[in-house]
Design a protein around this nucleic acid. Structure first.
Length: 584
RNA sequence: GCGCCCGUAGCUCAGUAGGAUAGAGCGGCGGUUUCCUAAACCGCAGGCCGCAGGUUCGAUUCCUGCCGGGCGCACCA
């Protein structure tokens, strides 16, 4: 890595001056006048050298081994700008071609275990737009962690007991009776969606009218199974994973209640509620059990066990228990992904864990610092310039499948692709639709509100960034199809001299640090941006220089360059799970 | 009222663990194709980075206050 090279040289020079900086920041300047790489380290050592940043920079540069650089300048208030020798830049190519598929793999998580929990929707309906962002985010974050070497568990937490599910059962039963033209009372708070009819119809198809006396519980179970199947299908489609890879564990909340009296939520025979009491974090009031959240700096105490009805726990107690469970399972890193609506909840959970940990009610290995919570803001679906109002109860929301189908419906196929059979054409459309859906949501920072303009996404078959990036890949593929490259050893890379060629190489060099930043900051958008920038440089190069030419040696060198670029593009696609077409 | 997120070009959004002259796409205007896929490339126009203070050599980035938008603030999940 060129950054590493510069950092190393700076460190050497600083050692000669007898100073040190905890971290040396190297950045890629926006402007070519500022060099290939730049450092602001002079600002951090100015005090140690008792001089101005500019003087500090000068002193540093005097001591610097400049053999790898064309020139090194101290400019402005004290920035040190490095202009790399071409030979230094060319080394990137060898490095990429040597590392191949491992280029950009990280050691961050090697030997460590991580868990990501997301989606976690209860099976009361199909996944809709509200789940879409989270689903894709979690998928990519999982892939990033795997790339970083973590032994990863993908987990989905759900609850198939309780009031919501009862409502589901009642709703389906009512619709079933309706289909049979029997008197039915649709529950006041029932699920109104069309899918309830579909499930009822499934039961009708399978069991005829024989279920009319059955209990709502059985309808619930049938509906749950049907919906879960559908949810898994949707995610399988969106993640493009085999069914058994979509999630490793579907964790049922009821697993937390593995003692006879479920009301007190056990975890590994350790009563969470008792621990909270012992830690003076829970107390009784007005017949309910409360979490003393205020003791942990939260604004209000919360009920953990209701005084009303069956004295059931509220969701907070199992949530706390579940997180204790996660910590006890020995993960080094636990990531929760929630929508902005869960903000308050998770803070209570973390507060409880901190309290238990600080008061020694959790083993020392269960430090809640291991938990990272990624909160993402909502997506507003915009259609005909207006936000689409959504209500789950009335079921006037767009499902993930509908979104993908919608995007798919407007994909225009190239003439060449139209020659293939219809299944292949279908697959090409499906790939594009999923690419578009994933990329569009990933390119935005998770904590910014996003408008997803359906009309725009549909129309954008030609102008949208996804096609742009894919096209860069395809252009390379087309060239490589036409030419059989020589082995790297016999190629004279020194022939690569054009500005556009060197720009590509410098961009390739950035890849590992981009991956690293994206992983550490849980920020997939760094990668979408990067792949766009790399694609831009590909198009720029392509327009200005011919690859296959009379000049055999130069052709070979350029083919090698493009191979490396293609490799890195492919690595980006792999991490984002975008499917690169060989033709488009 | 309290907590968190956001406010950057006409529109949609990147960027910000403090750095130099703030970016992209779309939209607008103009140009480029006998040549590996023009789904491309090049150029122009477009900005008090919500407002006001503070910290700093330096703030779009950090702090405080205000304004505007979103989401929460159940003995629902």
């Amino acid at each position: 890595m060129l950054k590493e090279l510069v950092r190393e040289k700076l460190r050497e020079a600083m050692a000669k001056l007898g100073v040190d900086a905890p971290k040396i920041e190297i950045s890629v300047p926006d402007k070519p006048e500022f060099g290939d790489l730049s450092s602001n380290v002079a600002f951090t050592i100015k005090a140690a050298l008792k001089s101005s940043p500019r003087e500090a920079g000068q002193k540093l540069v005097e001591q610097l081994d400049k053999s790898a650089f064309e020139k090194v300048e101290v400019v402005g208030p004290g920035f040190i700008n490095f202009f790399l020798k071409r030979e230094s830049v060319l080394e990137v190519l060898s490095e990429v071609l040597l590392q191949r598929e491992t280029y950009g793999k990280l050691a961050l998580g090697s030997g460590k275990r991580a868990q990501v929990e997301w989606v976690s929707a209860n099976p009361t309906g199909p996944l809709h737009i509200g789940h879409f962002r989270q689903a894709v985010l979690g998928d990519v974050i999982s892939r990033l962690l795997q790339n970083a070497g973590y032994d990863l568990t993908r987990e989905y937490y759900f609850n198939n007991a309780g009031q919501q599910m009862r409502r589901l059962g009642n709703s389906v039963k009512a619709r079933y009776l309706e289909i049979l033209e029997l008197p039915a009372q649709f529950p006041e708070d029932g699920y109104q969606g069309e899918y309830i009819y579909e499930i009822a119809q499934m039961i009708r198809d399978k069991h005829g009218s024989s279920w009319q006396e059955r209990d709502a519980v059985q309808f619930k179970e049938f509906a749950e199974a049907a919906l879960f199947t559908e949810i898994k299908e949707t995610l399988k489609r969106l993640f493009r994973l085999a069914e058994n890879k979509v999630f490793d564990i579907y964790y049922n909340e009821t697993w937390l209640y593995d003692e006879p009296d479920h009301k007190f939520v056990y975890v590994n025979n350790n009563q969470v509620l008792d621990s909270l009491r012992q830690a003076d974090l829970a107390y009784d009031k007005e017949g309910a059990v409360w979490f003393k959240a205020t003791a942990m700096g939260r604004p209000d105490d919360r009920v953990l066990v209701r005084s009303k009805g069956e004295r059931d726990p509220t969701y907070r107690l199992p949530d706390i228990a579940y997180h204790v469970n996660k910590l006890m399972r020995g993960f080094d890193l636990v990531i929760d992904i929630f929508g902005a609506d869960h903000l308050d909840t998770y803070q209570d959970v973390l507060a409880a864990l901190r309290g238990l940990y600080e008061r020694k009610k959790l083993p020392s290995s269960c430090n809640p610092e291991k938990i990272r919570v990624l909160i993402h803001q909502f997506v507003t679906l915009v259609s005909s310039g207006k936000p689409v109002k959504m209500s789950k109860r009335l079921a006037n929301y767009i499902t993930i499948d509908e979104l993908i189908d919608e995007l798919k419906s407007t994909v225009e196929l190239d003439e060449a692709v139209k020659l293939y059979d219809s299944a292949t054409q279908e697959a090409v459309k499906e790939d594009f639709a999923i690419n578009v859906a994933r990329y569009f949501i990933l390119m935005r920072s998770p904590n910014s509100h996003v408008n997803f303009d359906l009309d725009l996404a549909k129309q954008q078959s030609k102008e949208n960034p996804v096609y742009y990036i894919m096209y860069a890949y395809t252009r390379i593929a087309a060239i490589r199809d036409k030419y059989e490259p020589m082995s790297v050893a016999t190629v004279n890379l020194d022939l690569l001299k054009e500005r556009e060629e060197l720009a590509l190489l410098k961009k390739l060099d950035e890849f590992p640090s981009i991956v690293s930043d994206a992983t550490e900051q849980l920020a997939p958008q760094f990668l979408t941006t990067y792949s766009y920038e790399l694609a831009r440089l590909v198009h720029d190069f392509y327009e200005k220089h011919r690859v296959i030419s009379e000049n055999q040696a130069l052709t070979d060198a350029r083919i090698q360059l493009l191979s490396a670029v293609q490799l890195v593009l492919k690595r980006c696609f792999e991490l984002l799970e975008l499917k690169a077409p060989e033709r488009m």
